[in-house]
Computed example of a mutant assay.
Amino acid sequence: MKEKDNNTLVRLLAIGSLVGATAYFLTACRSSKPLETVRRVDIKKYAGKWFEIASFPSRFQKNCTCTTAEYTINDDGTVAVDNRCYNAKKKKWEGITGKAFVRNDDTNAELAVQFFWPLKGDYYIIALADDYSYAMIGVPSRDYLWILSRKREMPQSTFEKLSAIAIKKGFDVSRLRRTKQNNCD
């Protein structure tokens, strides 16, 4: 190979590496941006039954409809978590129970949820109605997002409002999928 061709190849590899490193850096910066939560959550008001209105698809909720989450405060201050859904493919109800731990006592909006010891997952309350009629949950990586309501249905205007908040917080709302909440009884 000629020296001129060799120098051109080295330059192209350097430029390619620089472009790749820049793309990686920008992606890493976006995903490492702190996820802002609501200012304060009254865990007692937050407890109770929630209906999933929409979420990012995940393997652990595959084929789920009629998805709910029920939270109960334990005597030790942790929160019992009971997630249920109807698996439309298997034609049966499924569920999992776990425990949530408040990570930030100042806000009660950052929790860690544990379904399998010793693994814990992030659970950040990033939007919450003043009357606790709806909530939006996300994780700092922006890989998971849930929109919850106290009722099986949510007005489109509320859904759009929450979607706009999610966009501002760095979530790709094109990934949101509505959860079927009909014929659940």
Rank of each mutant, 00 (worst) to 15 (best):
N6M: 12
P118M: 07
L119G: 00
S133D: 12
C184S: 07
D76A: 08
T68S: 06
I53C: 06
V81W: 01
T27R: 15
N6W: 12
T107E: 02
G138C: 08
F25L: 14
T97S: 14
T158P: 06
V19N: 10
R178F: 09
T37C: 08
A21W: 10
S32N: 15
A80I: 00
V79E: 02
S157Y: 13
L18H: 05
L9R: 14
I126T: 00
D42R: 09
D42G: 05
F115W: 09
I73M: 11
C64M: 03
E94S: 09
A14F: 11
C64V: 04
D75K: 14
E3W: 14
A129Q: 04
S31L: 15
L18K: 05
V173E: 07
I165N: 08
R177E: 15
F159Y: 15
D5H: 12
L35G: 06
T179F: 04
C184N: 06
D185H: 13
G170S: 07
D75R: 13
K49S: 09
F159K: 07
N183W: 10
L12C: 13
N74H: 08
N183M: 11
P57H: 07
N182L: 10
L13H: 09
Y134P: 04
I15H: 07
I126D: 05
R30G: 12
K169A: 04
A164F: 10
S174E: 14
E94P: 01
D122V: 03
F60H: 11
T22V: 15
S32H: 14
S31C: 11
D5K: 13
G138Y: 01
T72K: 15
L145V: 04
I165Y: 07
I137T: 01
K44S: 14
R84M: 12
A88F: 10
T22H: 00
R11W: 13
N182G: 08
P140C: 09
E52R: 01
L13I: 12
K4G: 00
G121I: 00
S17E: 05
V10D: 09
I126P: 06
I73P: 03
L9Q: 11
S157G: 02
Y24R: 05
T179A: 03
L128T: 02
S163L: 02
P57I: 02
T107N: 03
F56V: 03
K169S: 05
D42P: 01
K33M: 13
G20F: 14
K180A: 13
A88G: 07
A14V: 14
N7T: 10
K90G: 01
E110L: 10
V10P: 04
R40N: 14
E52W: 01
L35H: 02
T67C: 02
A88K: 15
I167W: 00
P57G: 04
V102T: 10
K99L: 08
N183C: 10
V81Q: 00
Q114H: 09
E36A: 15
K45Q: 15
K120P: 05
E153D: 15
N74C: 04
L148V: 10
N6V: 12
M154H: 03
K180Q: 11
G48I: 05
F25V: 15
T179C: 04
W146P: 02
D75I: 09
E52Q: 14
M154G: 05
L162S: 02
G170Q: 01
